[in-house]
Simulated scan of single mutants.
Amino acid sequence: MRRDHLRTTLLFLASIVIGVVGWSGHVLLLPAALGFPILWSLAQTRSVVALVSAGYFLAASRGLPQGVATFYAADIWLGLLLWLCASLSFVVVHSVLWTKNPNVRPFRYLLAAVIMSIPPFGITGWAHPVTAAGVLFPGWGWWGLNLITAGLAGLVTRIWPAVAIALTGFWLWSAAFWTDPKLPEGWRGVDLEMGASLGREAGLQRQRDLIATVRNAASDGGRVVVLPETALGFWTPTMERLWVGVLRAGDATVIAGATVLDATGYDNVLAAVDRKGGRILYRERMPVPGSMWQPWRSWFGESGGTRADFFANPVVSIGASRAAPLICYEQLIVWPILQSMLHDPDFIIAVGNGWWTEETSIVAIQRAATTAWSKLFAKPLVVAFNT
């Protein structure tokens, strides 16, 4: 009995360590998350699997309680409640599909991995070990995704030590020759430090500050300048006329986050504007559940919340190029980027407004995950965040 308790304790502690290290925000540490399937297979009962799954997920998403409390200006208990609720799908899926049968176990784990990649469970499918593919197999594209899938299956079999050694070899080789993703020629991503005021401060002075920022980036050779999520605030005809007038004398194009509001709710979008006019370039496929996406409102005849276009606009056209946009939360989950890669875009645009993540690793994790996907498919990357 004591030996069983010791084993369970060690597995639980190991799951926490793996969650913390793998999702620390350092891209080269993402492969540490591949330790989770090993622990999943070493568990001897379903209750231990639930404990290990909870330890891994809660450790990986440890910044959520503080972030939620900051976002809502509320007590930490609200953040803790949402943190626990978010872990339920991950824990339930991995617990239900666990089996003692070693011959069936690889298929069960792969099924769990697929379920946590796509809606509905994939909506909270954070900390997915498959994200490490870009570190282990940079530039391998879909072949790299297939290899890490086979590796995940191998890690839950009796030969897991050999599979782990092989994957570690790829990890070390990649780390030794690692380079960051390239920036598309003529593109500039602008990081801002405007805190909670970005997108909420609608005064003319704020727009003048953003215009000055764009002009500086354009003078540095940026033909296309990308601003963070919600940078423009509400997208209106007046806002469009202001920016078209500013850009009329040059060739620059601005891509910036904005909000489109109507009587039933709002869309979190990327708008593109140049001297010829403005347009909605992209509508976010998966807004943040709870704080933005609130589907239960319609059940009670209420309006409001952000619309989710789950599988819409996976790529967008910008001039002669095609881009895969990812807004904030979409960078933490799996299906938006894979859906976009099916259309073979020329590069990836990743924007976010992470003012509420101060003192957490959430923005760093978003950057690491996006970098890993960019490296896997050898796509240039444009990043613009506000903190």
Rank of each mutant, 00 (worst) to 15 (best):
G290Q: 11
Q366D: 08
R208V: 07
Q205E: 12
L155C: 02
L6W: 08
S219Q: 14
R188H: 06
L270K: 09
M116L: 15
E359D: 14
V225M: 05
A43P: 14
R283L: 00
V27M: 11
N268C: 03
S361E: 06
A231I: 02
T357R: 06
F57M: 13
M239T: 13
A271C: 13
A272T: 03
D309C: 01
W173Q: 08
N146D: 10
A252S: 12
S340I: 04
T168S: 14
R275T: 08
I165R: 06
I159R: 03
V214L: 09
I337S: 15
R46M: 01
T357S: 13
A54D: 02
A175N: 08
F347I: 05
P37G: 04
V91N: 06
R223G: 15
V135A: 07
S374M: 08
G277M: 12
A249Q: 07
G250A: 03
I211S: 04
T70F: 07
W173C: 06
Q339F: 02
L110D: 14
V156D: 06
T238P: 00
W296C: 01
L332H: 15
A378L: 02
T213L: 11
A74I: 01
S41L: 05
V315H: 04
R188C: 01
G233D: 06
L342F: 02
H343Q: 15
T370M: 15
F121M: 07
G233R: 05
S361Q: 12
L51H: 01
L82W: 06
R200I: 03
W142F: 07
R241F: 02
W178F: 14
S317L: 00
I255H: 01
P345I: 07
D220S: 13
V130T: 15
